[in-house]
Design a protein around this nucleic acid. Structure first.
Lengths: 226, 226
DNA sequence: CCGCAAAATTAAGTTTGAATTAAGTTCTTC
DNA sequence: GAAGAACTTAATTCAAACTTAATTTTGCGG
């Protein structure tokens, strides 16, 4: 998942970037509203965290123009506690959720997870569970039939992306763009390697390949083990 | 479907060419207005994407001269966000749709699909659905009576072309010219082979052959399966 | 800091399958 | 029933995807 954080408080932004990076998100950070305006509309982010108190251009204006231009990416806004009216304006302008400062970083993580599930039509699920597999975000593991399978960071974020797009065909390019920040080689075979590892751990049938098009996630059907 | 992209930003053009190619379009790319002027009028494109900020010759002039010369190919123009007046001028000059930069490539794909349907008199249809068959562009599949039939890239683009020209007789030469870029053998039997594959997957009646003239697409009538 | 172990990525060789060509067969029309 | 058009099947080609191993990077304990 690729996230954009628009926040001018350097200390806070650093912390959030590091935190989210550790959770397997590819995070970009911008401090200026004008830059955000452009980059948010041109890069394929899965979610944007937008502070409303920004230099360059007011966050609310940025958000309004994104929505006017047809951007559908989920946006979570950060507002100051004492500007409570901003929340309402923000939601009216097209924000999907908000958080008032100060907040705990874990709180942001939870909101992000929930927002991502919601955005992919997997609402009111407390945890990501698709086709017999249960993702445990806090431990980077999958649970199948009650037993844990430990994944590495790369495997985990790849699987998370696939599970958030069930029944869809996800191209290798799409995976490269959404799992890695901006500039990663377009002709690397990282994805293939990690897909291979996932298939080893979860069984061959879990990820179907559609030659020339991409991969498609299937749950584990009945008692397939290895 | 054969598309022409006229765009001087090499990185963007590369990306779009690759994207659209992956979706089964035969894509040509030109960076110069003067070249575009000539080639757009002489090759049988199904749609043209034209950036208005071009070297060689202003995009607007190119478009005006195409229209003056009687070219009816649908044209989608790309304009910069801050030159909003261009959009109006572009539409006046004969553009069929526009997109402001920056945009997401998927957005362009959707516009192209919609414009192609429109250009073939299948307006206000959100998806291409003819004679009981439903084309799913995002998954390169057809849906008949609710169940999916997976197609390869070549089969898909052939079927798409036929479905965009329903009730018409489409010659083999026409298919070769519109499904393959410029130079492909005129006496190859690729089309026949793919038609054969499509008939296998969809049933014999779906594509009628008019000996000496070409093929004609028919929907599936009632309960024909194989 | 340094060095070690695990993970991530790159690289190289192999396998697979779609696309095209090729060749032989069956229609269709005169 | 001959000739050409279209059909069908099989062979070939070539790029995509897989697999394994080698290399680089990262994180961590000393």
């Amino acid at each position: 998942m690729r996230l954009l954080i628009v926040e001018d408080d350097v200390a806070l932004a650093d912390e959030l970037t590091a935190d989210l990076g550790r959770s397997g998100y590819a995070v970009d950070w911008l401090a200026d509203g004008r830059d955000a305006q452009y980059q948010g509309a041109s890069e394929p982010y899965d979610l944007i965290v937008l502070d409303l108190g920004l230099p360059g251009k007011p966050g609310l204006d940025v958000l309004r123009e994104w929505r006017a231009g047809g951007l559908t990416t989920p946006v979570l806004i950060l507002t100051a506690r004492d500007h409570w009216a901003e929340r309402i304006d923000g939601l009216k302008a097209g924000a999907d959720d908000y958080l008032t400062k100060p907040f705990h970083p874990e709180e942001l993580q939870l909101r992000i997870q929930s927002l991502l599930r919601r955005a992919h039509g997997l609402a009111n699920q407390a945890h990501l569970e698709v086709g017999g597999l249960h993702l445990d975000e806090s431990r980077q593991a999958v649970i199948r039939n009650g037993n844990d399978i430990i994944l590495t960071a790369a495997e985990f974020s790849l699987l998370r992306y696939l599970m958030l797009h069930p029944q869809q065909i996800v191209s290798k390019l799409q995976l490269l763009e959404h799992l890695y920040d901006g500039e990663t080689e377009r002709d690397s075979n990282v994805i293939e390697v990690h897909v291979n590892h996932l298939r080893r751990k979860l069984g061959k049938a879990v990820i179907e390949t559609r030659r020339g098009q991409g991969y498609k996630f299937h749950g584990v059907t009945a008692g397939s083990t290895s």
